[in-house]
């Protein structure tokens, strides 16, 4: 038998997933308690489980805290202008359908400044994955409100409480015909990674809204000053309901009103690529 060893933590200097991250750039820029590192972790785990070689995976991100995620993944990675990663990913995917193109960016980037590209990419059903990290705020610029800030929530530009109702993103994506729509938090790590893996295998536009803590930004204005406050919020308020009525999954963050999670939609629809092949046939390029 092996000899008995006194057990304690072992101090090392690299992790088994360092092959998929740009380890020379760690520690990353995100604040303590920020959920973005966890999103990154789930993404690389999903890649490892995806049966698609890492060389075929591409990540595109925009501007903001989440926008920095592309710089930490050891893949072909593109960090483009504010609001535009979806359009960039569309151009790339259309000319290279063999690549698995994933956009990971923030709520402000993808559905506020970039909302137009978002709705049209879903409508076209371009075969890309869009993982939207929703922290309810513009973190990097100094905690301004955005189109996902819950009604009444405070921020540096809504000192009296946000005066606008926010997007209900799963409903938006589903209404536009997205074949895959899910929402998870950074606490639901395995479900999130599974949803990401599923998204990579779905044909067409796959959308996951990831609710993520921002204790230093949004939290400091709204009584969620510590990452643990968010964990408590998620543990107490999240309900998993895969067949939820998407009209009712808007997020209020009010006490007693749940955050509904799940893989809401998983269906088939012809992709942009499928329809482009039809065009190629009509134009005489394909028989």
């Amino acid at each position: 038998m092996g000899q008995k060893v006194v057990l304690r933590e072992r101090i090392v200097d690299e992790s088994p997933r360092d092959d998929l991250i740009r380890r020379e750039r760690f520690p990353h820029i995100w604040c303590p308690g920020c959920g973005l590192g966890t999103v990154l972790k789930c993404y690389v785990e999903a890649i490892a489980a995806s049966n698609i070689p890492p060389d075929k995976h591409v990540i595109v991100s925009g501007i903001g805290c989440t926008g920095r995620i592309a710089g930490y993944v050891r893949l072909d990675s593109y960090h483009v202008t504010h609001g535009r990663p979806i359009a960039f990913a569309e151009g790339m995917k259309i000319v290279r359908p063999d690549l698995e193109v994933t956009v990971i960016s923030g709520d402000g980037d993808l559905v506020t400044i970039g909302g137009n590209h978002f709705i049209h990419a879903v409508r076209r059903n371009v075969d890309i994955n869009v993982f939207l990290v929703n922290n309810f705020i513009y973190g990097m610029t100094g905690n301004q409100m955005g189109s996902t800030t819950p009604l009444g929530a405070k921020s540096s530009t809504s000192p009296y409480g946000c005066p606008e109702p926010p997007f209900n993103l799963p409903l938006l994506a589903a209404a536009l015909g997205a074949p895959f729509v899910a929402r998870w938090t950074t606490l639901h790590v395995r479900q999130l990674a599974d949803a990401m893996k599923r998204a990579m295998n779905v044909k067409g536009f796959a959308f996951i809204e990831i609710i993520s803590p921002c204790p230093v930004g949004f939290g400091s204005y709204n009584d969620l000053r510590d990452g643990r406050d968010y964990i408590k919020l998620f543990l107490e308020n999240c309900i998993v309901d895969h067949s939820a009525d998407l009209n009712k999954v808007g997020i209020t963050l009010k006490p007693g009103e749940p955050i509904i999670l799940g893989n809401f939609i998983d269906r088939e629809a012809p992709t942009y690529h499928d329809l482009e092949l039809e065009v190629f046939k009509k134009a005489g390029w394909l028989k």
């Binding site: 593109y78 535009r84 359009a87 960039f88 790339m92 259309i94 000319v95 590209h117 049209h120």
Partner: peptide
């Protein structure tokens, strides 16, 4: 595309490919 911004960005994406 949906606008000229999307057009030039998609062009950049294709060029990067």
């Amino acid at each position: 595309m949906e606008d000229e911004i999307g057009s030039i960005v998609a062009v950049c994406g294709a060029s990067a490919a």
